[in-house]
Design a protein around this nucleic acid. Structure first.
Lengths: 214, 214
DNA sequence: CATCGGTTTAGACTGCCGGTCTAAATCTGT
DNA sequence: ACAGATTTAGACCGGCAGTCTAAACCGATG
């Protein structure tokens, strides 16, 4: 008796094209409707698959969303924070963090569907639940990064680590969402400089001595 | 032909106790289940009202959520930012902003149901839609505050106003949520100082010259 | 008091949802 | 060829938000 989900194993045993059969339909549905409002029924109709067969390979909507995102997430595995973790001084640390932000924005711009799914993931609690494991990993990695910064004196340590991590990740999402919602209002020429300046905002709450300047 | 919703007028013509009949049930349901997963049917059963009568006073789930929140929101009308808007210098501005944060945290601590509803409002897009008008007002007021800060040199103005507003509001929500989720992990003695220090984070991204310190 | 028009009310009903279940079809090993 | 397990189709379930019909109620007018 494996305690790992049967459906997941069965699904990953399928060929790439078979998997794509569902995942393409699912991705289209999720990108348009988000997680909660996406219809599992519509997905399987679009994929021309029966309910029985579909539930044979997916335990439910959660797992289908997870699989959909996971296919795209291979891309994001490219993120590599070791340089930042091993930075020798404050300036080097922030340079590497900036580099990570740049490669993330690049990944989002290069793959709109991936960016959409990630945004859904953050916005909808139900979606977040279905991707809990990778999200926890992300928090752990961010936590390690923050601690590395703290040991260099680059990051404040007068607040709980968890709070700093949460705030940083939420801030990143907030900035990303603003640009996603306002592409039209940002002149293309300024977009790059604005966006890098904006991601500089990520550092602000982490710097030592950033209290209300009273 | 009024273009204002009939149901809303009918509902507001009811007595306080009649309104409470639905709103108490609705508040309980929404606080437990959030917006999407709350069941309109369960609410009307709990309120011992028929479907016909309920739909006579509410156009749907959206409006019921709006009404539920609005009843509590009377409390929040107390927030008054004129002092900050009229501050004479940078220090005065930030002092007043800090005061606003304090009175907000106090309001949240004093009224758990209100805090829950506000958190739902921010988390679920569907809920946000039903409360769009007051939310836009909040954004406008925050925008005015940011501009006031800019005119005093207290706030950077090298980024779009809308971005600064979004980031600030999201950051506030993020901090609030962390404390709501981690009350148990924060020693009571430190809670107050931590929380005020944390809300100091709000100012950080707004300060001039807060780029990546490369 | 009777009756008539509009308003209010109860609750049956619709279409869709995510998910379960049964029974047939299809594989696999002998 | 056939038995047993796996895979598949799609009917079915309870619950959802929201609609609709027909009865009950109510106030004005004869």
């Amino acid at each position: 008796m494996s305690c790992e989900s049967e459906t997941r194993k069965r699904f990953s045993a399928l060929s790439d094209t078979d998997r794509a059969h569902w995942l393409d339909a699912a991705e289209a549905e999720f990108c348009v409707h988000g997680f909660e409002k996406a219809s599992f029924n519509r997905i399987l109709v679009a994929a021309k698959e029966s309910k029985g067969r579909t539930y044979h390979y997916f335990s439910g909507k959660d797992e289908m969303f997870r699989a959909t995102l996971e296919r795209r997430a291979a891309l994001a595995g490219a993120i590599d924070e070791t340089a930042a973790l091993n930075a020798g001084d404050e300036a080097g640390f922030w340079t590497e963090v900036a580099r990570i932000c740049e490669s993330l924005t690049a990944a989002f711009l290069a793959d709109a569907a991936f960016a959409d799914l990630i945004r859904i993931l953050h916005r909808e609690a139900a979606a977040r639940r279905s991707f809990a494991v990778p999200l926890n990993a992300l928090e752990r990695r961010t936590g390690a990064l923050v601690r590395a910064g703290q040991s260099l004196g680059a990051v404040r340590d007068d607040l709980p680590l968890g709070l700093l991590v949460t705030v940083t990740l939420d801030l990143a999402v907030s900035i990303d969402r603003w640009f996603a919602d306002n592409t039209d209002k940002v002149p293309e020429a300024e977009a790059a400089v604005l966006s890098s300046r904006a991601f500089g905002l990520l550092a602000a709450p982490l710097l030592p001595h950033s209290e209300f300047p009273v």
